[in-house]
């Protein structure tokens, strides 16, 4: 028997995302945003924290590292959003 206890949660997540994403192209845009958003956040994080606003310092950092750091930054934002939703719950 197939174990699909995570299915309702993932479908709920897709339902929430479907209101942000364009109709009919949800899956494509989820992939695009999953690649681009952490990468952009990673670039900005390195520029303003490690690079201190100087661009050429960042030329040697591998792309995957930039993406991973951006992913962590993005996850902090998501956690803060969940915390905000928990504290200021809308009825």
């Amino acid at each position: 028997m197939k174990n699909n206890y995570l299915a309702p949660q993932s479908s709920m997540l897709m339902q929430d995302l479907s209101f942000i994403l364009p109709k009919g192209h949800e899956k494509i845009f989820v992939v695009i945003y999953a690649l681009l958003v952490p990468y952009v956040l990673g670039l900005l994080f390195f520029l303003f924290s490690v690079g201190e606003g100087i661009f050429h310092i960042l030329s040697n950092i591998p792309h995957i590292v930039i993406w991973l750091v951006g992913y962590e930054v993005f996850s902090i934002f998501v956690l803060l959003y969940i915390l905000k939703k928990t504290i200021f719950r809308e009825y």
Partner: peptide, 16 residues
């Protein structure tokens, strides 16, 4: 998406 791609390209061009 285009905006983000352009930003990444510009960023890497600046860091060369």
């Amino acid at each position: 998406v285009c905006g983000m791609v352009l930003f990444i390209v510009w960023f890497h061009w600046m860091s060369l």
